[in-house]
């Protein structure tokens, strides 16, 4: 892998609401290298989106606040930048693609206008040149008749096209880091395949690091190099893609993998769901947020957050179950016998 782009250490973002403090992100650490794709996996409320928004300092304050941690973009501490400086970082160094291409484009501005605006904002380019670049970018992300399309409005674009336009906008300033927040969730599966292809191509072309936020382990399996699994604002496990899929150590990761129906399964097996309901974010336990749903929990789990345990190269887990016991339990799960084949 290439140079280190981003080092996040102990990031905590909390929301101070009327009903109590929501610890949306709680002591999360990760790194991102050039040309690398980090998948952040978690369900709704796991804090994956808040973690990403924190990187760009896009957390609405109040009620949200980054309360702890360091966010190093190269040798710059993102938390210490002035508002003006962070605006330069957004778009220029870190760009973001959102889930819903229907609402993240301004409906009353031409597509070309919206892309050109980003270019003019961050680069020393004239209007004519910026529009020309916009057309080139649209062409690059695979929009046919780009010359004509720049003059159209978002409503004239289909969902997939809009997401392509969003990608064009995101890469317009050649950012080092591209954050894609559920970029394909709102799209049909054949369009999803197209968009993932475009993201991969752009990553190759611009040598960026990509942070892919998703709940879809299939998409992660397809393009991520390493994975961070989040639950209730905590990182429960992180590691290389193969480690997470073939050597997972956290009961939540097991649960996620066991709950998925698979297209390539030959015989019909019963899914193994995770029991219980998602946690109440206002009343998270001081220990592991997965308590109550974990089948292997012990008394310590509720009150104490386990220290990070390194179980392999670049593979860490936060869990109180001793390692040998974990391996034993995992071997007994039907799902992993299938993988073992």
């Amino acid at each position: 892998m290439g140079e280190r782009l981003l080092t996040v250490d102990g990031l905590s973002t909390h929301f101070f609401t009327y009903a109590g403090v929501v610890k949306a992100v709680n002591g999360v650490s990760f790194t991102l290298d050039r040309k690398e794709t980090l998948g952040i996996v978690g369900e709704s409320g796991s804090g994956k989106t808040v973690a990403a928004l924190s990187l760009m300092r896009l957390i609405p304050d109040p009620p949200g606040k980054i309360v702890e941690g360091s966010l190093m973009l190269g040798d710059r501490d993102l938390r210490k930048l002035s508002d003006e400086e962070i605006r330069q970082v957004r778009g220029n160094d870190i760009a973001m693609i959102f889930q819903d291409p229907m609402t993240s484009l301004n409906p009353v501005l031409k597509i070309g206008n919206q892309i050109a605006e980003a270019i003019i904002l961050h680069q020393d380019k004239g209007k004519g040149e910026a529009w020309k670049m916009a057309a080139e970018l649209l062409d690059r992300v695979g929009i046919p008749d780009a010359e004509k399309r720049v003059n159209q409005y978002p409503f004239e674009f289909s969902g997939g096209m809009r997401q392509r336009a969003m990608i064009a906008m995101a890469i317009s300033c050649n950012p080092d880091i591209l954050i894609a927040d559920e970029p394909t969730t709102a799209l049909d599966v054949t369009i999803q395949a197209q968009i993932i292809d475009v993201i991969e191509e752009m990553q190759q072309a611009y040598e960026s690091g990509v942070i892919l936020i998703t709940h879809d382990l299939g998409v992660v399996a397809e393009i991520a190099d390493k994975v961070m699994v989040m639950y209730g604002g905590r990182t429960v496990e992180y590691g290389g893609i193969d480690e997470i899929f073939y050597n997972p150590h956290h009961p939540y990761t097991w649960g996620l993998l066991g709950s998925l129906p698979r297209l390539d399964q030959t015989e019909k097996t019963r899914l193994t769901p995770i029991k219980g309901q998602p946690p109440d974010l206002i009343a998270l336990p001081s220990g592991c947020p997965f308590v109550g749903r974990c089948l292997y929990e012990r008394p310590t789990c509720r009150n104490q957050w386990p220290a990070l345990e390194i179980v392999g190269p670049e593979h860490g887990v936060n869990c109180w179950i001793p390692e040998d016991e974990r391996r034993e339990v995992r071997a007994s799960l039907p799902h992993f016998q299938e993988y073992a084949k």
Binding site: P273, K275, G276, Q277, D280, A283, G292
Partner: peptide
């Protein structure tokens, strides 16, 4: 039984 009759806030 699999579900553990749901308990919540």
């Amino acid at each position: 039984s699999e579900l553990d009759l749901i308990e919540d806030k």
